[in-house]
Nucleic acid binder design. Structure first.
Length: 284
DNA sequence: TAGGCCATCTGGTCCT
DNA sequence: AGGACCAGATGGCCTA
């Protein structure tokens, strides 16, 4: 159940070998980690395994990459909150990844057209699942009535129109992801770890987990500060208001050295629901 | 070379 | 209806 291995993170970035990561318990719920790590990596791992075993043919009896296949790892997948959302999980009607069961002629045509013209200046040509022989494409043929009605409308569109629509949607999605990455970079900037050209930047998952950690630590720090203040003033200082310290969490980030000097009491898991990511990681 | 991380495409679903 | 959001799929790049 070990998802994030601090040793792995530390190995990737020398900066992470000391300081905050070493001391702070990386708190995260197991569910969140399963979700964040997700089936993608597992699926990729399995695919790579199959590739290495030369088992990419139709023999999926041993290890199947089909989302609907009862892979042992899938047992850890949280149930999707949205009905039959997503792709490939609806009734096991997903196809294999062989080109033969690829999809609707529409997609094939789009492939040809976009492959020839180049989808977008910024596109990674050939990359991505762009022109995949996807399970989702197949599953779309069994989609809901609402979706089918939309498809009816789309079927009435001409090829260039569909192509334009696809490009537009793709562009929007790219922009959305870029914005997300910008926000992620902004989060990295305020994280208490060394920044620099020679330092590998935190991965997204590491950034999120570190951010959570950091917030918890600051919260605890604030609580402790309030407790100390109340002890010092013996409760006479009614004028003291938590908001006086509240700005702390929103002010400039603590320097790494300062964070690293935080009392150990602030670095332990603080909530019952918190799960340390593997005892092997954070045995302090 | 395996595994981790990422960008991108894509279809489905939800929301305004 | 259109856009936002989500998650699966896929291939590229990088590192140990």
């Amino acid at each position: 159940m070990l998802i994030i291995d601090q040793r792995d993170l530390s190995a990737r970035s020398p900066v992470l070998r000391c300081g905050f990561w070493e001391r702070a318990p990386l708190l995260a719920s197991t569910e969140a980690c399963v979700k964040l790590r997700g089936p993608r990596e597992r699926g990729r791992t399995l695919r790579k395994l199959r590739l290495s075993l030369g088992a990419m043919d139709s023999d999926a009896s041993l290890v199947s990459s089909r989302p609907s296949s009862p892979e042992p790892d899938d047992l850890f997948l949280p149930a999707r909150s949205k009905g039959s959302g997503g792709s490939g999980f609806t009734g096991g009607t997903v196809s294999s990844s062989t080109p033969s069961d690829c999809p609707p002629e529409l997609s094939a045509e789009l492939r040809g057209a976009m492959g020839a013209a180049g989808a977008h200046p910024g596109d990674k040509l050939g990359g991505g699942g762009g022109f995949k022989s996807s399970s989702s494409s197949t599953s779309s043929s069994t989609s809901s009535a609402a979706a089918s009605s939309t498809k009816k409308d789309k079927k009435q569109m001409t090829e260039p129109e569909l192509q334009q629509l696809r490009l537009k949607i793709n562009s929007r999605e790219r922009k959305r992801m870029h914005d997300l990455n910008i926000a992620m970079d902004g989060l990295r900037e305020v994280m208490p770890y060394a920044h620099g050209p020679s330092v590998r930047k935190l991965s997204k998952i590491a950034t999120l987990l570190l951010a959570r950690n950091y917030i918890l630590m600051l919260t605890n720090s604030l609580e402790e500060m309030k407790r100390l203040v109340s002890e010092i003033y013996g409760g006479h200082h009614a004028g003291f208001h938590p908001s006086a310290c509240g700005g702390l969490a929103h002010s400039a980030p603590l320097p790494a050295a300062r964070v690293n000097a935080a009392p150990a009491t602030m670095l332990r898991p603080q909530r019952p629901g918190d799960v340390q990511l593997g005892a092997s990681l954070y045995e302090l």
